[in-house]
Simulated assay, not measured.
Amino acid sequence: MNNKFFTFIVTLSSMFCMSQTYHFPEESSPHEGTWLQWSHHYQHGKTYRERVEQTWIDMTKALQGNEKVHIIAYDDAEKKRITGILEKNAVPLKNIDFKIYPTDDVWVRDNGPIFVKDDKGKLLIEDWGFNGWGDKFDSENCDKIPELIGKDLGVKVVNLNEEMVNEGGAVETDGNGVLMACKSSMISQKSGAIRTKGITQQEAEEMFETYYGVSKVIWLDGVTGLDVTDMHIDGFMKFINHNTMITMDEEDLLELGLSDKDISTLYTATNVEGKEYKKIYVPATKNKVKTAYGKQLEDKGSYVNYYVANNVVLVPNYGDPNDKIANDIIQKQYPNRKVIGIDVRNLYENGGMVHCVTQQQPIGL
């Protein structure tokens, strides 16, 4: 074959592939189901499992009435154990589906499948790289989860493992072309926080534009090393729709570690039409969080890390005076869904809340 013609064909093929863009359905769009990675004892021991397990029981009970709950169990023994726990807690099993995959931990928002739709409306899975938040923790098992789910569901998987590491909790989209993220948890090249070695801001934005279907990326600097995630966006802001975000007041954001610059960027952010987002403010907990078993933690808790399901909204609760205030504020934003408080005190000790351990599957298969 003529070399020039061959080069032309390869170039044309590459252009065609890159012309395919994807759309990430917003969380509040109709779900087929929710994915959960159930806690187990194989990585962190039985005490860890037993302390956090009630959160999974409560989430499953709240979700199963209106959508499927896809529970990832470590092995058959764990599946049997979990089934017994659900039955003991009077949780109906009708809408519950089990998958047997080994996992390193519970954070399915970060390592799990990113369900998107192509330009024909077909549902696909994006399998981004996952490296344990910059190689801080084991990740080999969790990194395989999207591929395993795609194979089991018979859904095409777009393999992005060699292109970019991306954790689902590190990005927020407004469903209408805007994505917000922190540089610290996406493109930082500082030791201990590197997701994708050598990636530039422009390269990350091009990936987001193609694979999330956005046209505008808003960056906060974030704080590298502040926590395991290097400051995930879903801890302090969430888009309610393409005109409105929910976040926290300046004092709470400063206490969480945001800089004045980042707060200004957040508060003045605009949508694709150039209109500043309306802001709904929800407080942090009144007190620093104390676990359900009595350990005093060093930080207040965030209510922004909630999860929007078909007919319910699961809001992290802490046994704090501000639980009711936050639940009521969030309830007003979702009048057609019921807010259910989920006790996350013991989970919060390990760095996460409700949104961190849930992953939506949109209707579309």
Results as ranks from 00 to 15, higher is better:
Glu162Ala: 14
Glu205Ala: 07
Gly84Asn: 14
His242Lys: 13
Asn241Met: 11
Gln20Leu: 08
Glu255Leu: 14
Leu220Gly: 10
Val344Trp: 01
Phe6Thr: 11
Arg49Ala: 12
Asp118Leu: 10
Glu78Tyr: 11
Ile199Trp: 04
Phe208Gln: 11
Glu172His: 02
Ile330Ser: 05
Val357His: 02
Cys17Leu: 15
Lys151Tyr: 02
Ala204Val: 10
Glu298Asp: 14
Gly352Asp: 11
Glu298Asn: 14
Tyr306Lys: 00
Val304Tyr: 07
Leu63Trp: 05
Asp119Met: 14
Leu253Ile: 02
Thr270Arg: 15
Glu147Phe: 13
Glu298Pro: 06
Val313Met: 07
Pro283Trp: 03
Glu276Leu: 12
Ser13Cys: 13
Asn271His: 07
Val228Glu: 15
Ile194Pro: 01
Met248Ala: 10
Lys183Arg: 12
Asn287Val: 01
Ile72Arg: 03
Asn350Trp: 14
Gly169Glu: 07
Asp118Tyr: 09
Thr268Leu: 03
Glu78His: 14
Ala193His: 00
Gly225Met: 08
Asn310Lys: 02
Glu87Met: 12
Asn159Asp: 15
Asn176Thr: 04
Tyr74Thr: 00
Gly132Arg: 03
Val214Ile: 15
Cys182Phe: 15
Tyr293Cys: 04
Lys80Gln: 15
Gln361Arg: 13
Thr285Phe: 00
Lys295Arg: 09
Val217Asn: 09
Val304Met: 09
Val354Ser: 08
Glu255Cys: 07
Arg109Tyr: 05
Asp152Trp: 07
Arg81Glu: 10
Val312Tyr: 05
Met186Tyr: 01
Glu78Gly: 05
Asp143Trp: 03
Ile233Ala: 08
Gly65His: 10
Asp252Gly: 02
Asp221Gly: 03
Pro30Glu: 11
Ile71Asn: 07
Ile218Tyr: 11
Thr7Asn: 13
Glu167Ile: 08
Trp38Cys: 04
Asp135Tyr: 06
Lys261Val: 12
His41Pro: 07
Gln296Trp: 02
Val217His: 13
Lys295Thr: 10
Trp38Phe: 08
Gly112Ser: 07
Glu87Gly: 06
Val313Ile: 05
Lys122Arg: 09
His70Leu: 04
Glu163Leu: 11
Leu258Tyr: 03
Tyr307His: 06
Gln54Ser: 12
Phe24Val: 07
Asn243Arg: 09
Lys190Ser: 07
Gly129His: 05
Phe24Cys: 04
Lys183Phe: 01
Ile57His: 05
Met237Asp: 00
Ile363Gln: 14
His232Asn: 01
Trp107Arg: 13
Glu203Arg: 09
Tyr293Met: 01
Ala292Ile: 00
Lys238Gly: 05
Gln202Phe: 11
Ile218Met: 11
Phe5Thr: 14
Gly168Ala: 05
Ala309Glu: 09
Asp323Gly: 11
His70Arg: 06
Ile342Thr: 09
Ser185Met: 00
Lys332Pro: 06
Asp260Glu: 15
Val304His: 03
Ile199Gly: 03
His44Asn: 13
Phe115Ala: 09
Ile246Trp: 01
Lys46Phe: 07
Arg345Met: 06
His70Met: 06
Tyr74Asn: 05
Leu314Ser: 04
Asn161Trp: 09
Lys216Gln: 15
Asn243Pro: 03
Ile125Val: 03
Arg81Ala: 13
Tyr303Leu: 00
Ile149Arg: 13
Val312Arg: 06
Gly235His: 05
Tyr303Met: 00
